[in-house]
Write a protein that binds this DNA or RNA. Structure first.
Length: 348
DNA sequence: AACACGGGGAG
DNA sequence: CTCCCAGTGTT
């Protein structure tokens, strides 16, 4: 009885997928109908936190820079971050680089467990790569799957284990890769978070949330940690094209370059900056507001002079925060103000 | 179990 | 503007 319903759902969704699957660059297959595991892996890391429409642009740019695992594994980390620039969650790029070296040395794993052992590869990515590139019967559990399954059973508060169990039961073991992509495509294009398009859904006849009349109520929203407000000051030595840049350590924008920054209110942060860089003649350039996952940064940017080496900003990987800070100098009113300031002493 | 980690899109 | 979205790693 139960098996019959599972098979009906599988057939209905796969029929829909066969007609509506999106043609995406990482879905390209070779003459044997196989996908390049390298492309599948990179795309899945990218799509973890990036929407498909933007992910396509980043994917093509990354593949242009690093067409295969050999190219990626031998590149300097800075070049990898440059290819990832603007994409966010830069730990993904650092892990991609580290994992590439393991893949180049030991070869590609052909199982879920083998992929799971790589840095940056968790249960979702291991299931995606092993099913899509190797045909292993592993069910993915991502945000789309969670939402679709939550609605099919009208389970408002699905736990991770609950979703995984349902996904495992429902998985089409003859076509695991297609099944996983079908479920995720459905979530991305039909079973939308706010306004699900139930009339277009091949599973609406099997859907308890649809039957309830309020499909959008599932799953219930999760509580989120509030964003922290942070003040900081940055120093721009040079100009927007050629400036003094520092490489950041730690996990926050780690490995990326940017203007020297000190946290704290400007009256405290600016003197620290000036002292640290031996800088003089600070002028306030403007304020940059930038929101990150759990941070709302208000950055006061100052121009100053200091005995430091300038370099082309375009050659280094920069976060959007630093691009915004540099862009302050492109504004005509700022240019006018700067030109009206008397020349400072030499920077040699 | 809670949090850190960028950058988006929708309304 | 405000609200919402989301895998992996760390603690």
């Amino acid at each position: 009885m139960h098996e019959v319903k599972v098979e009906q759902r599988q057939a209905a969704l796969l029929r829909w997928f066969d007609a509506h699957a999106r043609a995406l660059p990482w879905r390209r297959v070779d003459l044997g109908g196989r996908r390049d595991p390298y492309r599948v892996w990179v795309s899945e890391i990218l799509l973890q936190q990036t929407q498909v429409v933007r992910g396509t642009f980043y994917f093509e740019r990354f593949m242009q820079a690093f067409p295969d695992v050999q190219a990626l594994s031998t590149a300097p980390l800075e070049a990898v971050l440059k290819a990832w620039e603007g994409c966010g969650y830069y730990a993904r790029a650092r892990n991609l680089h580290k994992a590439a070296q393991q893949l180049a040395e030991r070869g590609f794993p052909d199982t879920y467990k083998g992929w799971l052992a790589l840095p940056g590869v968790g249960p979702y990515t291991a299931a995606a790569v092993s099913s899509l590139a190797y045909g292993e019967a592993r069910a993915v559990n991502d945000g789309n799957v969670r939402r679709v399954l939550s609605r099919l059973w009208a389970e408002a508060h699905p736990s991770e284990a609950w979703v995984q169990q349902r996904a495992d039961e429902l998985l089409d073991r003859a076509r695991p890769g297609d099944w996983n992509e079908a479920l995720m495509d459905l979530g991305a294009t039909v079973c939308l978070p706010k306004s699900p398009r139930c009339p277009a859904c091949p599973l609406s006849a099997h859907c308890a949330a649809f039957a309830s009349g309020e499909p959008g109520a599932y799953p219930a929203p999760k509580r989120r940690t509030p964003v922290k407000t942070v003040r900081a000051a940055a120093l721009l030595i040079g100009d927007a094209d050629s400036a003094y840049l520092e490489q950041r350590g730690g996990t926050l924008l780690g490995g990326l370059f940017g203007l020297p920054i000190e946290e704290g209110p400007p009256e405290e942060a600016l003197p620290r900056l000036l002292k640290r860089l031996n800088a003089v003649s600070p002028r306030h350039l403007g304020t940059v507001n930038h929101t990150m996952t759990h941070r709302q940064i208000t950055l006061e940017v100052y121009a100053a002079e200091a005995p430091v080496a300038l370099e082309p900003a375009a050659g280094r990987p920069l976060s959007r925060l630093d691009h915004k800070a540099l862009a302050l100098l492109d504004r005509a009113d700022v240019q006018g103000r700067l030109w009206s300031v008397p020349e400072a002493e030499g920077v040699d």
